[in-house]
Design a binder for these strands. Structure first.
Ligand SMILES: [Mn+2]
Ligand SMILES: [Mn+2]
Ligand SMILES: [Zn+2]
Ligand SMILES: [Zn+2]
Lengths: 139, 139
DNA sequence: CGATCGTGTGAGAATGGTTCTCATGACCAG
DNA sequence: CTGGTCATGAGAACCATTCTCACACGATCG
């Protein structure tokens, strides 16, 4: 029983690059986007490795993932505490928001219907100020 | 301007069969699942047609669609009024639930951050009574 | 330091859900 | 009834994601 259940997570140039890039971005981005950005930037990383690095970060709770309307997965460096997202449909800008009321509500509704092992997901989508129609003309 | 903006929606055997099947099911099902069920049942429909029929029903507001964790789309006959879902992860059993408080909350939070054209999505996932561990043994 | 071991990497193939193509079939208004 | 649209379906195409496997390279320990 001396072998760790979860293998040691090695620190590699690729994983460092992926996390560093996510730290600079403020919105949700797809794996393909991140891969392209890394390539432009010079420190290229294989696409499969980008996917693996992102999955590891999600498992470690450092990154949140959500599905865009067309089913593509999008990733974002997020705080480790439970929260929800206010996402701009146009530019991806995201604000983390908390909502205690819905936490209790979800648990209560689930219990009323006999559901266990309850989880919930709440996302709010809209158009941010910068992306509002006319925002470009105003400056 | 005599041509209708939206072409007439013809009533075909295939579209009727898809909607009739959805009316008998109480949970979210993937297009592939529905296609297989229709085939078993005898009145087969092409897979592409199943996808097109489902998309039309979604456009008409008769069917709701959500993405499972692996990105697959799942469809369910739903009421046309705004609501949220309590979904069993195991069998797909779904209960429609309303939550007035979150409606106001979403609008307020979005406004505070300058977001417009706000939409939100709230889903609760859990394990229903029938799928709870031990339920099978209990009869 | 190095040797060693096991994990990480990446190019390309494979997978699989969804959409597209296009020739053919069938609603339905007139 | 009939024509003109729209619908259908088999298969190809698409494309995000995962898998394969030979090779590279962190971490560990003497
Ligand atoms: Mn919550
Ligand atoms: Mn709502
Ligand atoms: Zn924006
Ligand atoms: Zn269930």
């Amino acid at each position: 029983m001396s072998a760790p259940e979860v293998p040691v997570r090695r620190q590699t140039r690729q994983r460092t690059a992926v996390l560093a890039l996510l730290d600079e971005l403020d919105g949700f981005r797809t794996a393909q986007d991140l891969h392209a950005l890394l390539r432009e930037r010079g420190d290229a990383v294989g696409l499969a490795t980008v996917y693996r690095a992102l999955q590891a970060l999600v498992d470690d709770g450092l990154v949140d993932v959500l599905r865009s309307e067309d089913g593509e997965a999008a990733y974002r460096r997020c705080s480790p505490v439970h929260h929800h997202h206010l996402v701009c449909r146009s530019c991806g800008l995201t604000v983390e928001v908390a909502d205690p009321p819905v936490e209790r509500w979800a648990a209560r509704v689930a219990a009323e219907h006999g559901f266990a092992d309850v989880q919930h997901q709440l996302e709010v989508f809209g158009t941010c100020r910068s992306c509002a129609p006319g925002a470009a003309a105003q400056r």
